[in-house]
């Protein structure tokens, strides 16, 4: 007897509502190439990306604040392994604390030679200053991939 297997594929489409706060955030990215956070009235923290309520005070945020475009790397990784349904490696991405923000936002790091892992990792070390770069207006769709980070010279 040969032990048998059966192949199955899941392919499901969702259409997620973003809500008012995220919709405004993406509208500003798309139309004005600006990154906005939301300030918490009780502790003054600026949440980036913006949330309608604070994870710390649990209160509603009440003010839009522009942050960046400069910032500092808080975490990174460089992916060298291919994974299904994820981009072709290598690629570098991670989290940046934009100037004026209290929390870090994720994005790709571009403009770095990733062929030598150790040398690439040195260029992205925690604390490195970066600037936010935006896609051309015609290419922006209102998504976190409309912007990325490059190391400041």
């Amino acid at each position: 007897m040969e032990l048998m297997t059966r192949k199955e594929v899941w392919n499901i489409t969702y259409n997620h509502a973003l809500g008012k706060t995220a919709s405004e955030f993406f509208t500003q990215i798309k139309e004005s190439a600006r990154i906005l956070g939301r300030r918490c009235p009780s502790d003054g923290r600026v949440l980036v990306p913006p949330r309608a309520f604070s994870d710390e005070s649990l209160e509603a945020t009440d003010e839009w604040v522009e942050v960046g475009p400069g910032g500092r790397i808080e975490a990174f990784t460089i992916t060298y392994e291919p994974f299904q349904n994820l981009p072709e490696p290598p690629y570098a991405f991670g989290y940046v604390l934009l100037d004026g923000a209290s929390t870090a936002i994720g994005g790709y790091f571009k403009g770095i030679d990733l062929s030598d892992p150790a040398r690439a990792a040195e260029k992205l070390v925690v604390g490195t200053r970066v600037k936010t770069c935006f896609a051309e207006e015609k290419d922006r769709i209102g998504d976190v991939l409309d912007f990325w980070f490059e190391v400041q010279d």
Binding site: H16, L18, A22, A75, F83, Y91, V126, D143, V144
Partner: peptide
């Protein structure tokens, strides 16, 4: 990868390996 928020995070290639690689970096 599907455990991440589809609004702000999912467009990035997050997985449990990359998440904990960033923990290692910090």
């Amino acid at each position: 990868n599907k455990i991440w928020d589809p609004i702000y995070e999912r467009p990035l290639p997050l997985g449990t390996i990359s998440m904990l690689a960033m923990s290692a970096v910090r």
